[in-house]
């Protein structure tokens, strides 16, 4: 998603201003002149300054032009047509799904859903996607649960080595 420098710069100005304001409202430390408020306020001012410079287009000459994607994208993005950029949100959405579902469904099922959905969205064949979804979660579970003792949730389906 390409935004103009005006928008990202403006956003930074806003964020910097918020950081400054938020920092200035922090309580001071009794007996000390320099407290937790100083640093966010310094950074906030810096962000406002940088954001303004960016919005004005200063420093633009240093940048390499972003290559434009013109070829057809396989998988979900290709099918979404005009809304193709939405496909980029699939990976973070799957991570959130993992957080919400792992405790209830257990690691193996959640991971399988995650891998299946990601593979299909990337344009994998059903055979490849299902194969991955069946094999990858147990393998990852084995390494992390047995070798590294990471307490992965069991949920509905427990691994035999758990």
């Amino acid at each position: 998603m390409h935004l103009s420098d005006r928008i990202t710069g403006g956003f930074l100005v806003l964020l910097g201003a918020l950081a400054f304001w938020g920092g200035s409202r922090l309580p001071g430390v009794p007996g000390q002149d320099v407290g937790p408020a100083v640093f966010p306020m310094v950074i906030g001012s810096g962000l406002v300054l940088c954001g303004a410079l960016i919005a004005l287009g200063i420093g633009r000459s240093f940048e390499a032009p972003e290559p434009d994607d013109t070829d057809a994208t396989p998988g979900l993005a290709g099918r979404l047509g005009r809304f193709a950029p939405v496909a980029a949100l699939v990976p973070p959405a799957l991570l959130i799904f993992y957080v919400l579902a792992a405790d209830r469904l257990g690691f193996l099922l959640t991971a399988a859903v995650m891998v299946l959905a990601a593979a299909l969205a990337l344009g994998a064949s059903w055979r490849l996607a299902v194969g991955l979804a069946l094999l990858a979660p147990p393998a990852v579970h084995l390494v992390f649960y047995r070798l590294l003792r990471v307490p992965l949730p069991e949920g509905l389906l427990a691994a035999p080595w758990a």
Binding site: M114, A118, L122, A124, A129, A136
Partner: peptide, 11 residues
């Protein structure tokens, strides 16, 4: 293939 590697990396 990318469609196989990326989901694994995500996991």
């Amino acid at each position: 293939p990318r469609a196989a590697a990326m989901p694994l990396i995500l996991l």
